[in-house]
């Protein structure tokens, strides 16, 4: 059976061309990257210092009790999972061409990053408030 073409060439181009989200994707990847340059260095330094203190539960609670540390770690977690989602999305789009597999991976990635990000934010708040 031959497929009937009911769209004009222009309509097809409009529908199948750029999804018009490339700039936003690129921009958010850069924005989260810029945010994570200082935050990443701070997190690495803090985790390094925590390891020097034995990294026990009390030391971790002590680190996150202040408002500054908790705020910065929440910011880092959010930026990290957003950046991770944007980056792995491109990797999947580049290498996975089997459409059902591709969409399953993209949905799993988006939801996974959302869930992990929320879990991190909740955990930091819980540790900061109740210890």
């Amino acid at each position: 059976m031959r497929e009937t073409q009911i769209q004009t060439p222009l309509a097809r181009v409009r529908g199948l061309g750029s999804a018009k989200q490339g700039t936003e994707h690129w921009w958010m990847q850069r924005l989260t990257a810029i945010l994570m340059v200082p935050l990443g260095l701070w997190v690495v330094a803090e985790l390094w210092l925590l390891a020097m203190r034995g990294a026990d539960h009390a030391a971790l609670v002590d680190w996150l009790q202040g408002p500054v540390a908790a705020t910065l770690l929440i910011l880092f977690s959010g930026a990290m999972f957003f950046h991770l989602k944007l980056g792995l999305q491109v990797v999947i789009e580049d290498y996975v061409h089997h459409k059902p597999k591709k969409w399953a991976l993209l949905i799993g990635l988006s939801l996974g990053c959302l869930i992990a990000g929320v879990a991190c934010v909740y955990s930091v708040i819980a540790i900061a408030l109740k210890g």
Binding site: H57, L60, V61, S77, M80, F81, L84, G87, L88, V91, A116, A119, C120, Y122, S123, V124, A126, I127
Partner: peptide, 22 residues
């Protein structure tokens, strides 16, 4: 970048277990 996704998952598990208690 791809491999660091596993580090992000570990960080998440580490914080979750810390929030759940010692």
């Amino acid at each position: 970048g791809v491999f660091l996704a596993s580090a992000a998952a570990m960080l998440c598990c580490w914080l979750l277990t810390a929030a759940a208690g010692p």
